[in-house]
Each structure stands twice: as structure tokens, then as C-alpha cells.
Nucleic acid binder design. Structure first.
Lengths: 358, 358
DNA sequence: CTGTTAGCGCCTTCAA
DNA sequence: TTGAAGGCGCTAACAG
């Protein structure tokens, strides 16, 4: 211990204490000692002093000089949604492992907010952005890319677009789910979709209809309902569905939140899963297996999506490789539990649906 | 539109285009036009040009100059835990509303990582830190405060310490839960605790024992089990508990994750809630009401905790008010659903517990 | 009312 | 093998 009482906040202070130049200190601290053939003696002296005085370089100044902040922006529609939260976790961990920090932004599923966030991150000079976009418009994102900040999209993507994306194969996932329902004997299968017009939703609807068609079943447009990934939509759509003259024997919920709404509505009607109606949901949750009837789900490989997003983005940042492959689609998995059974006799369900909720 | 072809990346460039000084531009952009009595004509000119050329000030340079980054660090043990995720959301939203961004860090419930994160955030020159600490040691946190970065602790706190904290009244929450169990007729009540020795755990255990004592019930130390807030602990502890000669008729789980483990174990034993055993959990979850038996829980006021944490931290940052009140404790709420019933006859449970899991 | 200029802490070119 | 000095973009004295 030399003089722990001296305040060292600068590289200059440190150099002064050691009686050498800031240049040398900087070089040592950046691991360029051997490159500049700095004597081991000097090098050690610097390293020890840095530790001794508890000196950490000012990343802000560094960022200004180097024109890179080693910071990534992460924009997510709702961080309290476990689906996004778990991806955020992987992204943070993996980024940090590679020396980058994350600025977290919640767009509240609002397009205007997303737009502002993109500018905010730009002015904060992040080196790149991982974005789970809210809507169907991508102009503002493309513009961001033009301004030199690489962007990688997760979850949703721009069909035929130029922005790299990582997502699950939603078409296949939906198709698998519906095939499963069909093979259990269901013929009247409803789906409660999320935001209409966005890629993942369209893909899922296509998977749904194709599964039906491939089994020679008719596609009843009125069984495709909903317009939002939230819980309220699941609730309202289910009520609407179960009040039909000919209610579905199975419901395919396009998100875990929608599924929650479905459960609530079914619960109020006194309808049981899978005895009265079968349910399959997108996006697995740890608690799905503890429900009254453990939920059969289509699980997206979130960890992989998140991890690859970081890798692709950092590749874009470091190698300026304008992304040979612009899009990656990962296989989802159908997790079969206990929310799907043989279709019930129509009569029992109708009468039950006629009951007023508690 | 003047010349959208000219690249404006500087305040200097912008000043050049307008033929005025950088000072004036800077002043206008920082809303100090009237303070310096800048003519409205000039002011408008600047504002329009900024918009026109899509100019955003470089926050990095600004941070260097001002010695403040308008960035807050947020360290959380596990962002994929919905309890923390929802607080993170409120913190992000509220901070942004007040002009601050969030650097998100996941400490993976690891003390060493937490320590490193604190240094990382220090070198990134965040203006303040909101921290949900991992462990029982607080030296590294205190040290961080000494170095000039204000820290506010959430969830856990340092008993008798000097670091400001916002937390729920865990003692009261636990006490309420156990009183509820007692009033339902339970006498053999187990609790599965989290990390021993940390404030919230100790408070909950005290609430548990005091509730028992105040009703003249004996405190059986062997019914206080567990050592971690995770799902595995809930699972293992429940198995251990139900294999006793005299298994509890009710279980109080100290976290939602522990509750999940309890459910899994009970499920394997073929034990039903609340017919065979009653359960109360800490930390409400949206899906708790859709379980086979909707879960009765102690809910912490997360939004309020998160919001106040931001307010207290920003107050510390802006007013350097060294926190008149160093700790705030918020009232929790007992949400009664359907996981608590009258205690079952002991014989049935014992025989059930003897059954091998599926 | 507006402008000139000196740094904030760091890295790097150029010079020795 | 080591230094000196300029400048990244911005703001705030200090001067008009």
C-alpha cells in the first residue's frame, strides 16, 4: 500500500502518482503493454497501482473518444410478461459476458413510445439495439439502421425485409398444436389471436388453417377471433365463443396471457378443461403444469432466440458484416400435458354456457 | 426543408449551418433561451433546424462534461422472476418519465457478481443505483455509497443500517397469513423459508412465530424448514415435511417459487389443496387464481415499492438530501382465495403421504 | 442578446 | 520503450 489517502480519479492522477505518462498507463490498462513493448516492471507497477487506488477508467470519456459505448439497447413491449422477461435475462447475461451492458426500455406495446425509444437510444449512442417490435410498421426501425446503429429484431419480424431477425417458427408451432387437437377428435376448433397483421400472428393463423385444410376440415372464419395478446382479449373472446349456438370444443390461445383470459372465462361459466373444452396455449410458463388441468403448450426456444440475437448483433457491430443471413427461424416444441381431451357432447356445453357467471 | 443532404452530427455542424455560435445553439436546445434572453427568431431557427436535420445531442459528451449521465443502475437477483420483473417495469417507466435511463443487471443471486456489478456501474458513471441485494453482507454496498454513488435498496434491507431502503412489512404479512391459517383451525403449520439470515426472511419467520405464540400455540422449530427462495427448495422441503410422522396440515411458502415446488410435491403425493393440506404463499401472481385451488397469498405492494425507490433515489441524486428517513416499510395485503380450508383428519394425510409419487 | 474558449477523461498519432 | 499533444461533442465561465 502506497498512499491510499490520495484520491485517484483520473488516468492523469494515476500517472502522476507513478511519475510516468498517461499514455503508458492507458496502454497498460488496455492490455497493449506487449504491443508497445512496455517493460514488465512498468506494466506491473501500473496494474498494482490501479488496484491499490481502486481506479476504474471512466467509460463515458472512453465512449466519447472511441465512439462506442459498449452498451446495447433492449426494447421490449412489456418486461413484466414472463416471456419477455426470460429473454431479457438471457440477453443481459450473454451481453455482459461479452463486455456489453444493457439499457432496458419498455415500450408499453405502444408504437409512438417505441419510436421515441429508438431515438433516445440513438442519442445515448448505444452500439446496437435488440428490439421486440410492437406493431406492423417498420419504417422507423429501418431508418435507425440507416443512421448506423445495427438493429436485430426478435419475436416478430418484417416479412421480406432487410432487418435481421430471430424468431420461432410460428407457423409450424401453430400447425403442430392444431394437428394435436384434430387427432384428439376435435372438429370445431377456435383460435384466439393476438395483434392482427403482425408476422407472428399471421404465421400462426396460417398454421392453424393449413392444419385444418390438410385434414379436409372446413375453415370457419368466425372461429378465428381476437385482436390482442392480452388477458382481456382472451376473456372476452372466450365468452363470445362459448355463447355461440355451436361453441367450439377446443380453443387455441395465441399467448399465455390470452390463455389466462380463457381460463378466467371458462371458470366463470363452470366449464372444465379438458372435460368440457380443450385448450392449447402458446408460450410455456412454469406454472402451466400446476393448473387444475396442466396446460398443453407450444414452447418457443426463448433462450436460443435471445442468445442468438446477442450473437448476431455483436457480429454486426464488430465485423460490420451486413448479415449474410437476414433471418433465422427456430423450431418450437409442443409440450403435451393435460388440457386436451376428446370433444365433449355438444349439449352439455351449451347448457353450461347458458349459465350466468358467478 | 433547407438542406437535408448536409450531415449534421454536431452541435458545431448545426451552428455552422445556421451561421451562429455553438453556445447559442446549446442554450436553445437546453431550454435556456429565455434565461439568456435569446431572440425568439433565433430560438425558433435553432429548433426548426434541429428537427429538420434530425439532430440529437450526444449524451455521452454531455455526460462527460456535466459529470452526470442521467442513467440509473438496476441490479436484480433474477429478472425472469415475475416479482422482480414487474418492479423492474415500474422502475424503468418511472425513471424514464423523469428523464433517466436504466442499465439492467442480473446478479444471478450471486454475491460476487453483485459486487462486480456495483463496480461496473460505477465505472459507467451511473448517477445512482437501485439494488435488490443478494445476501447478508452489505459492506460492498456501503462502500459504493461512500464513493459518491447514491444507492437505494429494495426488497431486502440492512437492519439498523445507513442505506435507505424500501420494502414491504414482511413481519406483518407473515403474521397475517399465519393468523388466517390459525383461524381456519390449523395447529400444525409449517413454513418453508428462503435464504436464512436475510432481513425479509427473518422478519417473516418472526411474524410466523409471533402469530403462533399470540394464540398460545407451541412453536415447533422442526416445522420451520428450507433455506432458499427457489422452486427446488419448495419441492424438497414439502416432501420432507409430508413424510413426517406428524405432517403439517398447512404450509406457508415464503415465495411464489417455493409455492410452485410445494404444488409439485403435493401433486406427486396425490394430496389435494385445501382438502388434504392448506397452503398460503408470499408474492401474488396473475396465475395464482387459476390454479386447481386458487392460491391465498400475501401480496407486496410492488408498484409502490418500485415507484418510491425511484423517487427516493432521484431525491438523493438531485438534492443530495442524505435521506432524512432511511427506511420505508409498506403494508402488504392478504389476498384470500381458496387454498385454505379446515384441517383434514391426520390419518388420511399420513397414508396418502406414504404413497409413492407418480 | 451572442460569441470565444477552456476543459470533462480518454486514446492515439506523431515524435523522440 | 516512452511522452506530448490534439481532439471526441458538449457546456459554462468569461467577454463582449
Amino acid at each position: 500500500m502506497r498512499k491510499p489517502d490520495v484520491k485517484v480519479k483520473n488516468i492523469k492522477d494515476l500517472a502522476a502518482v507513478l511519475g510516468i505518462s498517461v499514455t503508458t498507463v492507458s496502454r497498460v490498462l488496455n492490455g497493449k503493454a506487449s504491443l508497445y513493448r512496455i517493460s514488465p516492471a512498468t506494466s506491473d507497477k501500473v496494474m498494482n497501482a490501479a488496484r491499490e487506488f481502486n481506479y476504474f477508467p471512466n467509460s463515458i470519456a472512453r465512449g466519447l473518444r472511441l465512439e462506442k459505448t459498449e452498451t446495447l439497447g433492449l426494447i421490449i413491449p412489456d418486461i413484466s410478461n414472463p416471456f419477455f422477461a426470460s429473454m431479457a435475462r438471457t440477453i443481459e447475461l450473454e451481453s455482459r459476458r461479452q463486455g456489453y451492458s444493457i439499457i432496458l426500455c419498455d415500450s408499453m406495446d405502444d408504437m409512438q413510445t417505441e419510436k421515441e425509444l429508438l431515438q433516445l437510444l440513438g442519442s445515448r449512442r448505444v452500439d446496437g439495439i435488440i428490439l421486440a417490435p410492437v406493431g406492423k410498421k417498420f419504417d422507423h426501425i429501418r431508418e435507425c439502421g440507416k443512421k448506423g446503429i445495427p438493429v436485430v429484431i426478435i419475436d416478430r419480424y418484417m416479412p421480406g425485409g432487410s432487418i435481421p431477425f430471430i424468431t420461432a417458427d410460428n407457423y409450424q408451432g401453430a400447425r403442430d398444436a392444431v394437428e394435436h387437437l384434430i387427432s384428439a377428435g376435435h372438429r370445431t376448433i377456435a383460435c384466439i389471436q393476438g395483434l392482427k397483421g403482425i408476422s407472428i400472428n399471421t404465421d400462426r393463423v396460417n398454421g392453424y388453417t393449413d392444419a385444418l385444410k390438410s385434414h379436409g376440415l372446413p375453415v370457419d372464419e368466425s372461429l378465428i377471433t381476437g385482436d390482442d395478446f392480452g388477458i382481456e382479449n382472451g376473456y372476452a373472446s372466450t365468452r363470445m365463443l362459448m355463447n355461440r349456438d355451436n361453441p367450439p370444443t377446443a380453443i387455441f390461445a395465441f399467448s399465455n396471457l390470452i390463455a389466462l383470459g380463457v381460463l378466467r372465462a371458462l371458470n366463470e361459466y363452470g366449464l372444465h378443461i379438458p372435460a368440457d373444452v380443450s385448450v392449447v396455449s402458446f408460450d410455456d410458463q412454469p406454472w402451466f403444469e400446476f393448473l387444475a388441468s396442466p396446460m398443453t403448450t407450444v414452447e418457443q426456444p426463448r433462450e436460443k432466440i435471445a442468445g442468438m440475437a446477442v450473437d448476431v448483433l455483436l457480429d454486426l457491430i464488430k465485423n460490420k458484416s451486413s448479415g449474410a443471413k437476414t433471418g433465422i427461424m427456430l423450431k418450437p416444441a409442443l409440450i403435451i400435458r393435460n388440457s386436451v381431451g376428446r370433444p365433449a357432447a355438444a349439449s352439455s356445453r351449451v347448457s353450461a354456457a347458458g349459465t350466468k357467471p358467478v
